[in-house]
Design a protein around this nucleic acid. Structure first.
Lengths: 141, 141
DNA sequence: CGTATCCTAAGACACTTGTCCCAGAAGGTC
DNA sequence: GACCTTCTGGGACAAGTGTCTTAGGATACG
């Protein structure tokens, strides 16, 4: 056993997101959800075919990221990883690749180059203070 | 101008980073730098061969991300994109794919799940206050 | 000149990704 | 039972990536 998460491809991620949003779904349901959301393939620039979604779900299952369960006619797929985890993995990768493993640098860049919604900025400040207080030694004299 | 960068592959990024660090370099220099840094291929898990680095530099040139200039014996490669830009592109992608286009959410996640070095935390707080002050009406009284 | 070096060019090759077609099986309908 | 409809299964195939081999040109050195 080596590594089963060679970074999920974008297309599979799109499928996975639908499952995260809905909890579970069949090929057809995922396809419809994507269409409803106006999703388009990155190469052909048009909505995926049923087969494409099926393949993607299949590959996700091979990666162990979703599990399938046959009910009635169709397989129902359920994610076995949390969005959290995938996000964490992606961030980790990005930070390692482009920010020398320093999440702080990424944060700085985000703040400098991407204007965030004010409510997020507020939350960020609050969170930061909380963390600050925690990590600080109880300044005991 | 649309997008000529269908996301740089990781391997090419590794090469590009060396060029960013050193300003420029030949195949051999990049190779040596990577070896010195203990870099290993992701599939074979061993240091790249000269040819691999050459291929990667070549592909980078095809993408228009580095330019080559023959001096003496060897080609010298120089990056034509700034690390900044690549970082921005990557972040944008990540934010779009996993954070509904909200950089603020990413920041929040980073702060919650990745402990950052205290000096970065400090900088972040400072930066945030500055931004805050700027965007706020100069409530001077 | 002959040989050891180092460089480039060209391409090979396996695996991954993006995308889809088609032949059947399973179930419903009259 | 003959027919749809919807699913699954099993490829297929072009591009993109990761990695290397091989052949050959230029340089350097005795």
């Amino acid at each position: 056993m080596a590594k089963q998460s060679p970074s999920i491809p974008d297309s599979e991620l799109d499928v996975l997101k639908v499952l995260w949003d809905r909890g579970r779904g069949t090929v057809r349901e995922v396809l419809d959800a994507l269409k409803a959301a106006g999703h388009l393939g990155k190469i052909k620039g048009k909505p995926w075919s049923y087969a494409t979604v099926a393949t993607l779900l299949d590959r996700l299952e091979q990666r162990g990221l979703v599990s399938s369960d046959r009910r009635e006619l169709a397989f129902v797929y359920t994610p076995t990883v949390a969005e959290q985890d995938v996000r964490r993995e992606r961030i980790g990768h990005l930070v390692d690749k482009l920010y020398e493993g320093e999440p702080g640098l990424l944060v700085l860049h985000l703040l400098q180059q991407h204007r965030l919604a004010p409510e997020h900025a507020k939350e960020v400040r609050a969170l930061l203070e909380r963390l600050d207080a925690e990590s600080e030694p109880p300044a005991r004299g």
